[in-house]
């Protein structure tokens, strides 16, 4: 079986993640959508690594994981800080940017 199927699976997961980011008002859930998008990209990278028969794709996926870990730490800290300030983690509530 062709490893390209994994890439198609990655595309589907990516679009599901992006739809979650756009549709969910809960910041944590939206954040999980972001994580899913990152993982979809990782899956594509690993699949490409398999297709090309070399390790660079895996290395990239590894780096993405590290960066994602850092991102999660900071992102969740921001969510906590916002929750402290507003008693809410709804994405619709902070509308200070409204023109």
């Amino acid at each position: 079986m062709n490893p390209m199927n994994y890439v198609i699976l990655a595309a589907i997961l990516f679009s599901i993640g992006s739809a979650a980011v756009l549709l969910r008002r809960n910041a944590i859930v939206a954040f999980m959508g972001v994580e899913l998008m990152l993982n979809a990209a990782n899956l594509a990278l690993v699949a490409f690594s398999r297709i090309h028969g070399e390790l660079n794709g895996q290395i990239m996926a590894f780096f993405v994981m590290v960066v994602a870990a850092a991102e999660v730490v900071v992102g969740l800290a921001i969510i906590i800080a916002v929750f402290r300030a507003r008693q809410s983690i709804s994405l619709d509530e902070p509308a200070e940017l409204k023109g």
């Binding site: 198609i8 595309a11 679009s15 756009l22």
Partner: peptide
């Protein structure tokens, strides 16, 4: 918009 965008990106990629 969200569904169209997500579907669109999936279609394009696939």
């Amino acid at each position: 918009i969200a569904l169209a965008g997500a579907g669109g990106i999936a279609l394009l990629l696939i």
